[in-house]
Design a protein around this nucleic acid. Sequence first.
RNA 1: GGUACCAUAGCUCAGUAGGUAGAGCAAUGGACUGAAAAUCCAUGUGUCCCUGGUUCGAUCCCAGGUGGUACCA
Length: 307
Amino acid sequence: MSKKNSYNLVVVLGPTASGKTTLATKLASKIQGEIISADSRQVYRNMDLGTGKDLEDYIVDGVQIPYHLIDIVDAGYKYNVYEYQTDFFRAFEDIKSRNHFPVMCGGTGMYIEAVLSHFKMVHVPSNPELRKSLEGKSLGELTQILSSFKTLHNKTDVDTVKRAVRGIEIETYYKDNPEIEVELPELNPLIIGVKIDRDLRREKITKRLKSRLDEGMIDEVKSILKSGVHPDDLIYYGLEYKYLTLYAIGKLSYQEMFDQLNIAIHQFAKRQMTWFRKMERSGFDIHWMEATDSYDHRINEILKMLS
RNA sequence: GGUACCAUAGCUCAGUAGGUAGAGCAAUGGACUGAAAAUCCAUGUGUCCCUGGUUCGAUCCCAGGUGGUACCA
């Protein structure tokens, strides 16, 4: 086996509704693979229809394909990139130790890149002294302080006092401990991107939304709310959970919910593609494959690249 | 059939006291290192329904069409 082809990971990425899970599981069944999901919402238990878990896809020809990082935390929890990176490499080593082949599959660009680019992320303990010194400061002042550490690209970082303080805590820790290095396993990934024509993608998204609503997605949201998750937290998860919660609490009519959600999913798919294009520009070699080509054809192509 | 009102961007609509036009939404491109399905930035879009008239000049005024809505019959 040549050095160039000694891949130790396959990545299947693509926008929502491109059929990447099916491709990944079918591939996994051929190479003794196990799936490591790269989906920031499928980590949550009981959020099934709205995140498109499709767990039946993980049974190929009657055989269960093992999967990781799905259903690992409770709905309402705030999982994050740092935890993802840690969890990913744990699953990766675990799969390796069994002599199976890791197949990463998902559409959360930042999670994929945090892993492939070895984003520097270390465990940051809480800093009671710092917290004490920040006590009583306004959100505006905290925003000032955080922006002295890094460019703020979004408001999510300074949405609440709690998050702003944690952000400052993390940045302070990095600054005070520049020597800390994290040892992460070398990755030599074969990256497959599922490409889907824009119009077809929109058509599939709308169709899938309708069928999920028919399958009881509204009840799923209602029961999560009933279990005690605060509507605001569910709204923060975005897309299905945002618009269905707004509908469930009477802020949107059914038609408004449907139309706005449909548009929001289309916009999300576009943003995913923007991320993948940026990855390519920054040097990642993504092998794009047409979603309309047969699975057999595409899997043969991938197997050729792996051999 | 009669009367009134309307016809402008992909959609909903504003506007031009006559000098060829603009908001919101959508769309498109981009950013993104501890909630990322989040959050944020940028950018267009036009036979101003058709035909004629008045005018230096009409999307705007006038006449006639066509289509729509409402009311009356």
